[in-house]
Design a protein around this nucleic acid. Structure first.
Length: 322
DNA sequence: AACTGTGTCAACCGCTTGATG
DNA sequence: ACATCAAGCGGTTGACACAGT
């Protein structure tokens, strides 16, 4: 299929043909992955240098995981690194062997769309119609309706902090919730936030780590390969605003937790799991330890649809030692 | 079977950055 | 210092496949 092929003044656009790929590969074999513009100037291809480079980087480069969905582990890495670096897809991609910035970007974009849709469906007035998704309809019916929910517009999010802030505001949109009163809760209470079936000490330690904001990935920036996270300072208490408390109550609703349960859990093909040099969350006497590898009962997908910085909304108490 | 909504992916565009003259 | 160009990056778009109605 040719798709929308455009040729304007000898510049060819649109899907690549196998013959073009072959020419491009041969060029790279001869000259290396550079001098992209010379491909056209030599009359080898009617493509811009930009287009050639992109094709090589995203599709033809060796060792790419083409046509291979993101594993739960990769998803987790993306989520955590996005929280750390923001939308620095190229940078994040360097932590994911075989993945391109485009892959990461697409993965994140899909996830954002899905999250936005979930939120929209959970908060939209019942009068809204036309959704053909039975899942969405079910959510609309079974999640308690919140009054005065604004029409959700997919936000342009530059950071997941904004995302979760928006999430919180959206979920607790009634103005009566907007109270700055804070309450201290213990981290151990967080299991209420998630599907109880998914709760494990390791997961909660991860949540705690995320919430405390002592993210070890900052250190990874300098030296990803040799990176080993520092041990975060234990800090078992978080503050939680009333709106968050209310959200907590909603999480108690089994259908609300369902919202954050994996929708399309990537297959955990343990027989095909590539052991990539993913960044390892903290391992320190069980604090932040990852135990999935040892405990197949813990789904990686736990983190897949769960914003990594979900608890950024909850500010940690000042560290008494400081 | 036709239609619709959704997810995924490839590719393009505009902008920025860095090297070079 | 400035201009130019190649390369890189992030945002966006459109095509396609698939599932549900």
């Amino acid at each position: 299929m040719e798709g929308k092929l455009v040729e304007i003044s000898q510049i060819r656009k649109g899907p690549w043909k196998a013959e073009e790929d072959e020419v491009l590969i041969n060029h790279v074999k001869k000259y290396g992955p550079r001098e992209w513009s010379s491909i056209r100037s030599k009359g080898l291809l009617q493509r811009t240098g930009k287009s050639c480079r992109l094709r090589w980087v995203n599709k033809l480069r060796p060792n790419l995981k083409n046509g291979c969905k993101f594993t739960a582990e990769e998803g987790r890495v993306v989520i955590e690194l996005q929280a750390q670096f923001g939308n620095k897809w190229a940078k994040i991609a360097t932590y994911l062997p075989g993945r391109t910035d485009n892959d990461v970007k697409n993965f994140w974009s899909s996830r954002q769309k899905r999250l936005a849709r979930i939120l929209q469906n959970s908060g939209a007035p019942s009068s809204s119609s036309s959704s053909s998704s039975s899942k969405s309809l079910k959510l609309k019916r079974e999640i308690p309706a919140f009054h005065d929910v604004p029409v959700f517009e997919a936000p342009k999010l530059s950071s997941s902090m904004e995302e979760i802030s928006y999430t919180m505001a959206q979920s607790c949109s009634s103005s009566s919730y907007l109270d700055n009163t804070e309450t201290i809760i213990k981290v151990e209470q967080f299991p209420k936030l998630v599907n109880p079936k998914l709760y494990t000490d390791a997961n909660m330690a991860q949540l705690e780590l995320m919430s405390i904001g002592n993210n070890p990935y900052a250190a990874a920036e300098a030296q990803p390969q040799a990176f080993f996270p520092q041990t975060p300072h234990p800090q078992p208490y978080l503050t939680l605003s009333l709106e968050s408390q209310d959200l907590l109550a909603k999480f108690e609703d089994p259908y609300f937790s369902q919202v954050f349960a994996p929708m399309d859990v990537p297959e955990l093909d343990s027989g095909n799991v590539e052991q990539q040099p993913f960044l390892e969350p903290v391992r320190s006497g069980g604090f932040g330890a990852r135990e999935e590898a040892d405990n197949p009962m813990i789904p990686d997908a736990f983190f897949d649809d769960f914003p990594a910085d979900m608890f950024d909304q909850m500010e940690p108490l000042p560290n008494p030692s400081t």
